[in-house]
Computed example of a mutant assay.
Amino acid sequence: MKLNLNIQPLNTWIKTGKEPLVISGPCSAETEEQLVATAHLLAQTGKISALRAGIWKPRTRPGEFEGIGSIGLEWLKRAKEETGLPTAVEVATAKHVEEALKAGVDILWVGARSTANPFTVQEIADALKGVDVPVMVKNPVNPDLSLWVGALERINNAGITKLAAIHRGFSSYEKSAFRNEPMWDVAIALKTLAPELPLINDPSHISGNRDLIGYVSQKALDLDMQGLMIESHIDPSVAWTDAKQQVTPAALADIIDHLTLRKAEVRNSEVNDKLAELRNQIDKIDDLVIQKIAERMQIAEKIGQYKKDNNITILQVGRWDEILQKRTTYGKALKLSAEFTEKLLELVHNESIRRQTEVMNADAAQGQAAEKLTHA
């Protein structure tokens, strides 16, 4: 199923002559001097397509710096006038939309916390009706594809055709090297649903650490994302918010210089022929994998019948532990990561449990159906 979005190509509403497309600027507009100076340094790199800055900052706890407020829009206007860079800000209320547009902001984006709340998104969408302005929508805080899609649809239904999504990662209780888990599969799922929708990556919020920004940026470009939103500050060490994930304009330029741009499509017939050959091999293997899984499920149903006949519980914890240990070890020997093998086994195991449960409860289900017919 594909999303039916009415949108314009990215290059019709933002200059994409520079590759990759980069939107950059401080996490927060702190002072007029800080914002304007950062903007000039970014413009001088020649690698920036738009200037971003946080004006209103939704923070997790009260008492933290929640943005400089509307006065920052005037600073942003000055930065735009002096550098020629289009500007972008986050909006979380109808009032934010009104003030940003009045100040001449070129691009708006909906933040992760706002995307998670359909009421907030609808308020923003209502404020955008009749307005011709680009809007970007960040993924929600949690990995909920439907919420992300719903927010994009609400904005699009308001008449916004200059639309893009921003992948900024997802919150997770599990500790890892990332501030927000990339969960690339969710972003890929969105691209699959809406291939024409521009998808921009936010490596700053995924990384939470400037040392990882280059790595995440390259990964995003390799997955055919159309651009990057990277936070940059004239002096990150004294930044009022998210200091660890911001880079200086010079460091940003260095990161971009070391990125490798790859083509989404190849026109060389020899290369295409080789790709087609390799993909044909994958298709055959995929068919075989599915066939073998189907055979496995047939055996699982027989096991379910045997357990039913002998009054044995479906779940055998010892057996499941044995499968996990043996198959994970085998997977490592075949150069498969333990995480991948475990996830695959869990999917297969859950389907086996479901099949066996159906077999175990078949008589009860038939009995309920017969009872309904009796009382009909």
Results as ranks from 00 to 15, higher is better:
R59D: 07
A79L: 00
D286R: 11
D287G: 08
I14L: 10
K274C: 02
P143T: 05
W56E: 02
V105R: 00
T357E: 06
T241E: 14
E81F: 01
M136W: 08
I285S: 09
I160S: 07
S114L: 00
Q298W: 03
L152K: 00
K57N: 15
V359P: 05
K335N: 09
K302Q: 15
G25W: 03
I234W: 02
D273N: 13
V131N: 08
D235C: 12
W75M: 05
A276S: 08
G54R: 02
S232N: 00
N280P: 08
I282E: 06
L152T: 05
A103K: 00
A116L: 01
R168W: 11
R113P: 09
R262G: 08
D273C: 04
D202G: 13
L347K: 10
L76C: 07
D144Y: 04
A79T: 02
P140K: 07
K102V: 05
P249I: 06
A103E: 00
L163V: 08
N180P: 15
V22D: 11
E32M: 00
K284C: 04
G104Y: 00
G25Y: 00
G54S: 13
V135L: 06
T31I: 10
P58F: 02
P195I: 07
E181Y: 01
A189L: 05
W320K: 10
A125K: 01
A100V: 01
E351S: 11
V247F: 03
A39V: 02
L288M: 13
Q281R: 04
K302E: 11
E81G: 03
F119D: 13
L344Y: 04
M136V: 14
L41C: 06
G17V: 08
K335Q: 11
Q356G: 12
V97G: 00
T313Y: 14
I314V: 15
W184T: 07
I256V: 13
V149F: 05
I206A: 07
Y215K: 10
A39F: 01
K292D: 13
E98N: 07
V141T: 15
V359G: 12
R296L: 14
A125Y: 04
F119I: 14
D254I: 10
T260Q: 15
K191T: 06
V289C: 14
A177R: 06
P203H: 05
S352M: 07
T241G: 12
S172A: 15
N117Y: 13
D224P: 01
A194P: 02
A43K: 12
S172V: 03
G214N: 12
L197A: 07
N117S: 15
N4V: 03
L373M: 11
L199H: 01
P86A: 04
T248R: 09
K175F: 10
E342N: 07
E196T: 05
T115P: 03
F65P: 13
R61D: 11
K292C: 10
G84F: 03
A362L: 13
L199S: 03
R354S: 07
A43Y: 09
G227M: 01
N268A: 12
L252K: 04
A116C: 02
N272D: 09
N157E: 06
K102M: 04
G63M: 14
N280D: 09
W240Y: 12
E174D: 11
M1L: 08
A376F: 07
K15M: 04
P26K: 02
P203W: 01
A100D: 02
F178H: 14
T260L: 09
T329F: 04
V238I: 11
S70G: 01
L108F: 05
N268D: 15
K162R: 14
V216W: 06
A165P: 08
L51F: 08
D132F: 02
I303Q: 04
